[in-house]
Design a protein around this nucleic acid. Structure first.
Lengths: 213, 213
DNA sequence: TGAGACCCCCTACCTTAGTCGAATATTCAT
DNA sequence: ATGAATATTCGACTAAGGTAGGGGGTCTCA
């Protein structure tokens, strides 16, 4: 199977799809490409051709629901390497993508040469477990250490309530709320209420950015 | 001004950027193109060439924070038409983009011919105010009253910076930042920094849920 | 019965956030 | 150019956020 590679390119943007195909076509001469614009199409394509060599998968595709789609593809076709192509630069997303079994992660801002190189490496079996990746300190992990009461406080913080209002709603003193907030900030590894709220809301919505500094 | 159009193409993906430029280059022969990969670069380019005919702006670019970046560009260069090029399909985003002064909205899945046609229409002044059925006091409407400096402050607030850091980054005193924050809170109709950040981030991520447990 | 974890409450103190009034630039229409 | 309106800036003051340390109550597990 030297020069008959079979790729599945799953991305809902025709521009991106064509660019990826043309880039890979120059490196992998004679390769076969299948297109998919939705998760359903990608699944159907894999069902038809289970011997696909690699999938280039966009995370922001209809039906994906973030990383959920990746997990579903993996569970039904565990042997096919999946290469994530995404615009998200967020470290958490990358890490979780690996946790869900992605073989590589390509930023959309990468050059076409880089992309081809990564794909080649995956086909050669070079990239599997990323160097560090696993078991880092994700926000979700840190947040799991909160006690029930601290979760309630955080939930109200996220709604924009201030300590006095939180104290009233929970039926405790404001000093108590402050104590909880202090612990929450420490457990989350942030330095202000605003940062805690930003990260907590980012948990629900796998949005574009996070940034610390 | 027949054949000397000046475009600013702001997108962090080289692939998309090149595709846009080559598409427009065939229709607008002899046009000048400036590239930008970040919001800061786009702003610098507009500062250098305020007579740019149109900006093609990607919403998912570093430093944009969703629609925040659009609002900042508009507030500093109100006369330059901005054409949004985005992958987001949500209707809410499109509408708010218009509320913030975008001249047109192009989905990335549009064909290159469509794109060129829309750009042509904008240059001809055909597309300006979309059926500006603004009505109710949306957050976007309130936010549009912010001055350029206030936008800069808000953008840093949204990243979790505190007043001291904002002051340093903008090269002003902390007291000044506090004064700006006060005005921002009043214009936005909120009572605390946290609430302002929550609403401003809702601009970027129009997600439905909030995950409570 | 003790050790440990969670929760609640408090005082005292420091840091950050936010308000008010006012002075100095900048913009803009006339 | 000139006066009005607004932006930007700042210092001083008040309010809220956050920390350190202590005390006490409940529950669980060994």
């Amino acid at each position: 199977m030297a020069d008959t590679e079979r790729f599945l390119v799953a991305d809902d943007h025709p521009m991106v799809r064509d660019a990826l195909v043309s880039a890979l076509g120059q490196v992998f001469v004679g390769a076969q490409f299948t297109m998919a614009g939705t998760l359903a199409q990608a699944q159907a394509a894999l069902d038809r051709q289970p011997d696909t060599d690699a999938v280039l998968l966009d995370l922001d595709m209809p039906g994906m629901d973030g990383l959920t789609g990746l997990a579903r593809l993996r569970s039904e076709h565990p042997t096919v390497p999946i290469i994530i192509v995404s615009a998200a630069r967020e470290a958490g997303v990358v890490q979780r993508a690996y946790e869900f079994g992605a073989s590589a992660y390509i930023d959309k801002s990468a050059s076409l040469e880089e992309i081809a190189g990564i794909v080649r490496a995956v086909l050669d079996g070079e990239i599997f477990a990323p160097p560090d990746a696993v078991a880092g300190d994700s926000f979700a992990q840190r947040a799991a250490q909160l006690t029930p009461q601290q979760w309630r406080v955080l939930a109200l913080m996220v709604q924009g309530d201030q300590n006095k209002q939180i104290a009233h709603k929970l039926g405790v003193g404001e000093a108590t709320v402050k104590a909880h907030v202090t612990v929450i900030l420490r457990k989350l590894g942030v330095r202000s209420r605003t940062q805690a709220v930003i990260e907590a809301r980012g948990l629900a919505l796998p949005g574009p950015e996070t940034l610390r500094q």
